[in-house]
Design a binder for these strands. Structure first.
Lengths: 213, 213
DNA sequence: CAAATTTTTGACCGGTTGGACAAACGTTAG
DNA sequence: CTAACGTTTGTCCAACCGGTCAAAAATTTG
């Protein structure tokens, strides 16, 4: 640990970087499938192709892996919401936010499930982040949305619950994937289900269910 | 429940009935908060006010408790969907289905979380039921909804994804309760959040976000 | 090369967990 | 009272799990 001290981030060798990455990837697989308490260090080590003590050389405690994973996750997970911008047509903005979120559910289901697992258990490890960083971000975007409503660009509703409903409907396709596939069956449960979902959600959020008449 | 032997259901004394009920209530509390693997028999026993061997006298294995719980759960959990009827105004029917589901999320959050936990882990213990009983029920209701669409009573969309979206948006308030409260904050995260959610969801599903103009 | 440092591993440990078991306890019927 | 039956508990065990440690192996450095 020589040379210039770098804030709090420890210096790491190239091999440490790679192995840590390997472990985090394996841990994401295992944690998202079994939850934190349901996963064992041995499982993660095996998935990463190394022995348990070797893994513990890179991460001292099981919780350290989970914590690191969680920190990285939140950044990428909230990126779509951060991109929700005041410039451009409101309805278009919301539509692309929904689309981006749905794509994340499709492309990063493990991340979604890891997050869902944490929240389901009461978010013991990230509650401060929810009440701090997340709340701030959502409040900020809610203000933007309220502006759109005042300007008559979208219908008046509760912006917070609107955001909740977008989270719920999109992440559902990652978190409840097994159920979705089971209900849709072999024929409709294939790759096309995300396109069907995208079409449906667009209509739901824009027009609702009332008939044109 | 006296006298005659009833198929495969084992005969039980009154005290057995009561204690089993007590255990299932305690297990619901513990399982829904910690997941299956995250819960210990000791925890359940303590929550039920008895010793571990005593608990194991009523349920031979930990998994038996979970299985029994799961079977009962599914019945009550799908009741609102079963009630979705072809009689009455379609939009009203859907609106009350959403309301009933939201009430269940409010009144039975533990059941919702238990179910979510199971699905998240890949539904190892109830997959057959999803592909069988659940799929049948949903397909049946999808047909009803399709009829409404053909009759011009509601807009044309994918009935399956419509049902998914109702599940997702309502159960979100039970499964992600911690997050919802954190984001809404102390002032808006109180008991009123379910009424706000009900109002929002009604508007979303009926009219969508497009402004009246 | 050899010394120093980093990486990997086998063996081990203490605590926990699911579950077995026999003995004790309580209750009821004869 | 006592025998029979249902209930409860203390004790025990084997498997598992998170984590330690010292020593070997590999790699880097001089």
């Amino acid at each position: 640990m020589t040379g210039t001290t770098e804030g709090s981030a420890p210096r790491r060798t190239r091999i440490q970087q790679e192995k840590r990455e390997l472990i985090l990837e394996a841990a994401l697989e295992v944690f998202s499938a079994n939850g934190f308490r349901g996963s064992t260090i041995d499982q993660i080590a095996e998935a990463a192709g190394m022995s348990k003590p070797n893994l513990l050389y890179y991460f001292r405690r099981k919780e350290d892996i989970h914590e690191t994973l969680m920190q990285r996750l939140l950044d990428t997970w909230l990126a779509p919401l951060r991109e929700l911008d005041d410039i451009g047509d409101p309805l278009t903005e919301l539509r692309s936010y929904i689309r981006r979120k749905l794509e994340m559910a499709r492309d990063f289901p493990r991340e979604s499930r890891l997050f869902a697992n944490e929240i389901l258990q009461g978010a013991p490890r990230i509650r401060p982040m929810l009440e701090g960083e997340l709340k701030t971000l959502v409040d900020e975007k809610a203000t933007v949305i309220k502006g759109w409503m005042r300007a008559g660009k979208i219908a008046r509703t509760d912006p917070w619950h609107l955001i909740f409903s977008i989270w719920a409907t999109t992440q559902h396709y990652a978190d409840f994937d097994v159920q979705v596939r089971a209900v849709l069956g072999a024929d409709r449960g294939g790759d096309g289900r995300f396109e069907d979902a995208a079409r449906f959600l667009e209509q739901l959020f824009l027009d609702g269910l009332k008939p044109k008449s």
